[in-house]
Nucleic acid binder design. Sequence first.
DNA 1: ATGGTAGCGCTGCTA
Length: 258
Amino acid sequence: MRIATWNVNSLKARLPRVLEWLEYAQPDVLCMQETKLADDAVPVMDFEAIGYTVLHHGEGRWNGVAIASRVGVTEDRSGFGELVDPYEGEARLVAGTCGGVRVASVYVPNGRALGTDTYERKLEWLDRLLEWLDASHSPDEPLVVCGDFNVAPEDRDVYDPRAFEGATHVSDAERKRYQALLDWGFTDAFRQLYDDDRLYTWWDYRAGNFHKHKGLRIDHVLVTAPLRDRVTWALVDRNARKGEKPSDHAPLLVDLAL
DNA sequence: ATGGTAGCGCTGCTA
């Protein structure tokens, strides 16, 4: 099974790129973030025409998460359920079952700046994600949680750690929450295969950062123990960050021997 | 040089 995650930064603006990418990358499952669409605005026919069904959770304009699958997607649920969402009303979590694997597409809040209310609620949101996993899932089941975590787990995931001192995405509190997910039972599928630094998934549109290799590794595919030893291949598709109207994120692909 | 771009939607916010 090939599973991918991609913050598309508007599925409306990115639709041609996403459809083109699906046809050549051939993932079985694509988790998307920042679709910026309401559920009834999703171009489901375009996906169905190339063999994918779409599970979408969005409120329009901002945020929005989705799972496109060509191996089916069932048991949909969105949000934290009974748990209080620190970003109530914002579509940042959707989960379904695809070919026997539980899959969640997450868009962790950005947090903007340390010391702000949005940052504090980002930390709470990450706490709530762990509580949600504890309440409704098990590290013993085949589970993939992937998406834009807006956390660079280590300094080697940042193009210039000194430039990010005191910034979001790299703070101890954020990294502690990311580590708590690993401690719960997840493995970072990409890191399991690649130990190199300067392997990024996001580059700011501004100042030509992509071409200067100034990026962050903030998009992740987390897999539980039953899947950990089945990860055979992973790739950040930097070609998708090039060309006409790219997203500011590249897709991350992982192959599972299933 | 402390900037820059992109998306949404129409004013400035969000990233």
